[in-house]
Simulated assay, not measured.
Amino acid sequence: MQDPLPPAAAAMSPDDLLLAVGRARDRAAFAALFGHFAPRLKAYLRRLGADAQGAEELVQEVMLLVWRRAETFDPAQASAATWVFTIARNRRIDALRREQRPEIDPDDPALVPDPVEPADRTLETAQDSGRLRAAIRALPPEQAELLRMAYFEDKPHSAIAVERGLPLGTVKSRLRLALDRLRKALRDPS
């Protein structure tokens, strides 16, 4: 069971209790302050949208800040209640910001850079790309254009047929011929 508060602390106003904590680190005054504000803060934080556990944790944080910063309280500027509830509101805002901006996980695959490709592989890729471009240039212009539309512009065969005014079967057969020629050209590096 909790020790009862000294009668002097129980009779003091919240402003006087906060001043006693700030000036003399009076534990009995802080206990009375805690007993007065903790349930009110929890209800206030719940109205601001905090869940029960979150509100409880925020009350603990707020009251710890009250203990640490009590010497900065100035009754000429605000009442103890205004001062304490302002701290609570600010801590709630901080908590919401933390929830909306989660910490970055350095091991997140999206943040890990792609591995550097070995120089020989880079050279090989460049050579393959050059051979492919040369093979496409060697195609008849109409087949090269159909390839460009189908594979580089990602157009469906039916859209190409409409755009070119060709039957769908003709578009497909010309693309098949173009791909066969490319395969042969890339297989035979003459």
Rank of each mutant, 00 (worst) to 15 (best):
R187W: 05
K172E: 11
Y44A: 14
E61C: 05
A8C: 05
G35S: 06
A95S: 09
I160W: 01
P106L: 10
R131D: 04
I93V: 13
V62Y: 00
P115A: 13
V84G: 01
L166Y: 06
D154G: 12
F73G: 02
D94F: 04
E61H: 07
T125V: 13
L146V: 08
E124K: 14
R89K: 06
L33M: 04
K42L: 00
R176C: 06
V112W: 02
A110L: 14
T72I: 04
R183I: 12
L179G: 04
A119C: 04
A20R: 12
A11I: 06
D26G: 05
A95Y: 03
D94C: 08
A81T: 12
P115S: 10
S190Y: 02
P140L: 08
A32G: 02
Q100H: 14
A135R: 06
E99Y: 04
G49L: 07
A50T: 02
M149V: 04
D105V: 09
A80Y: 00
E124W: 12
I136A: 11
A144K: 08
E61I: 01
D3P: 15
L48M: 12
L166A: 06
R69Y: 04
D154E: 14
A119E: 14
F30V: 04
R98Q: 09
A43R: 13
Q53T: 15
T72K: 11
P39E: 00
L123Q: 15
P140I: 00
P39I: 00
R97T: 10
L132T: 06
T125D: 12
A144Y: 04
W83H: 07
P106N: 07
D15Q: 03
R101K: 09
R68C: 08
F152Q: 15
R183D: 12
L177G: 09
A20G: 05
A32N: 01
A50L: 08
R133A: 15
D15G: 02
D107K: 10
D105G: 09
D128F: 11
G54N: 06
L17D: 02
A8R: 12
N90C: 02
V116Q: 10
P115C: 08
A161R: 05
A10K: 07
L139K: 04
D94M: 07
P167W: 02
A88V: 06
A11R: 10
A10G: 03
G35T: 01
A20W: 01
K172T: 08
V62C: 08
Q143S: 10
A144L: 07
R91G: 00
V171N: 06
L186Q: 07
G165H: 02
R174N: 12
V162T: 11
V59P: 01
I136D: 02
Q127A: 14
V171A: 09
R101A: 10
E57C: 08
E153C: 06
V59R: 00
R23E: 13
I87Y: 00
D51M: 05
L168M: 08
R131N: 02
L186I: 11
D74Q: 13
E61W: 01
M12W: 03
L33Q: 05
R23K: 14
E57D: 15
D188W: 05
R174D: 11
G130E: 11
G22W: 03
Q53R: 15
P4R: 11
L18D: 00
D94Y: 04
A76W: 02
L64D: 09
D26V: 06
L139I: 06
P109T: 10
A150I: 08
S79G: 14
